[in-house]
Design a protein around this nucleic acid. Structure first.
Length: 303
DNA sequence: CTCCAGGGCAAAT
DNA sequence: ATTTGCCATGGA
C-alpha cells in the first residue's frame, strides 16, 4: 500500500493489538467488521462517502490503510482519531494495572490480558441501539438481530468479493415500521425503542454532543435514562463504550455478575455492597475493570 | 420441558 | 420505594 493512502499510529505502552483483536474476533458474528490474517477490515462513513480501511500491527505502529474511498488530509486525520478512539489508545492505563496488582483476586489479569483496551463504539446511536438489541437475550441471537437490522437499513460497500456494512443512520431507522422489525424477530418493545431512539437523534433531543455538553457523568446518565428503552444498564453501557466514561458500570449486567462470582468477589447477585466496595477500589477505572471481567468470561467459554 | 440470556417497563405491593 | 410479571427467541 502506497504511503499516501496510509496512516501510522504509534502504539502506546500497555497496548496489545492482539488482545484488542481477540475481543473483536470472539465467537460472535459481528456484521460491522471482518478480521482476517490479523487484520481488521471495516467500512466507515465520512462526509457521506464510504471508506474501507484495513488495520494491522506493524512494529511500533498501527498501520491503517485506506482500501476504498478518497484519502484527503482531513480523512487521514479523521481515521487517526477514529482508531485512537476505537482502541482507547490515548490513555495511560498504568494506574489501572497498579490497581489490579494490588488485588490478589485480579492481579493475574495484568499479565493474562496485558494491553487489552476498552474497545469503543464511537457512534452513540449505534451503541445505544446495540445495547437495546442485546437486552435480556443471548449474544448470538443479539448479533443475528443486529445483522438483520444492518443489512436491511444500513449502507454497504463491496470490495474483493466481500460486503462491508455501515450501521444504519438514525434518519433511516426513524422511518422504519414497528411491524417490519417485528417480522425480523425484534420484540414489540424493542422495535418501538429502536425507532423512538432514532427519532430522538433526528429531532436533536439526543446526541453525543448534547451529552458531552452536560456537566457530569450523572447528568449524562439521567439524560439517557429519560428515553424509553434506556435503563441503567444501557445508559452505563453507552457511556462506557461511546463516551469512554471511566465511571460507566453496567450494573446488573449478567456477565459482570457471573465474573464477580467466579472470582469469589460475591456469592449472590444481591451483594451490591461487595460490588460497590470493589469498584470503589478502582475509582476512575470502573469501565476498565468491567471490561477485563468480561474478558475473563471468554476463557471459560473456550474450556 | 425448563431455565436463562451483556434488561426495561409498568403495575402491584 | 422496592418487587413482580411480562416480554420474545434460541441455546443449553
Amino acid at each position: 500500500m502506497d504511503n499516501d493512502r496510509r496512516v501510522l499510529i504509534p502504539i502506546p505502552a500497555l497496548f496489545s493489538f492482539e488482545e484488542c483483536l481477540w475481543f473483536l474476533n470472539r465467537n460472535y458474528d459481528d456484521c460491522l467488521h471482518l478480521i482476517k490474517n490479523n487484520t481488521i477490515y471495516k467500512s466507515l462513513a465520512l462526509d457521506g462517502e464510504l471508506l474501507l480501511i484495513a488495520i494491522k500491527s506493524n512494529g511500533a505502529f498501527l498501520d491503517v490503510s485506506v482500501l476504498e474511498g478518497n484519502v484527503s488530509a482531513e480523512a487521514k486525520d479523521f481515521l487517526t482519531k477514529y482508531v485512537v478512539d476505537w482502541f482507547d489508545m490515548d490513555r495511560n492505563i498504568q494506574p489501572f494495572y497498579d490497581g489490579l496488582l494490588a488485588d490478589n483476586r485480579l492481579s493475574y489479569m495484568a499479565d493474562a490480558y496485558q494491553g487489552l483496551r476498552v474497545i469503543g463504539i464511537a457512534n452513540l446511536f449505534e451503541a445505544i441501539c446495540w445495547s437495546i438489541i442485546g437486552q435480556q437475550i443471548n449474544l448470538s441471537f443479539a448479533y443475528r438481530l443486529k445483522r438483520r437490522l444492518v443489512e436491511r437499513f444500513g449502507e454497504h460497500l463491496e470490495y474483493d468479493n466481500h460486503v462491508y456494512h455501515i450501521f444504519p443512520a438514525a434518519e433511516i431507522l426513524a422511518e422504519a415500521e414497528v411491524d417490519e422489525l417485528r417480522g425480523m424477530q425484534f420484540s414489540q418493545k424493542k422495535a418501538e425503542y429502536l425507532i423512538g431512539i432514532a427519532r430522538a437523534f433526528l429531532d436533536g433531543s439526543l446526541s453525543k454532543e448534547m451529552l458531552l455538553d452536560l456537566p457530569d457523568f450523572e447528568a449524562r446518565k439521567k439524560a439517557l435514562i429519560s428515553h424509553k428503552g434506556i435503563g441503567v444498564w444501557t445508559a452505563n453501557y453507552a457511556l462506557m463504550k461511546s463516551l469512554k466514561e471511566p465511571e460507566g458500570i453496567p450494573h446488573g449486567d449478567i456477565g459482570l455478575l457471573n465474573a464477580l462470582t467466579s472470582h469469589g468477589i460475591i456469592q449472590e447477585r444481591s451483594e451490591t455492597q461487595k460490588i460497590d466496595a470493589l469498584f470503589a477500589q478502582f475509582k476512575g477505572w470502573e469501565s476498565y475493570l468491567v471490561f477485563y471481567l468480561w474478558r475473563s468470561l471468554a476463557v471459560k467459554e473456550l474450556a
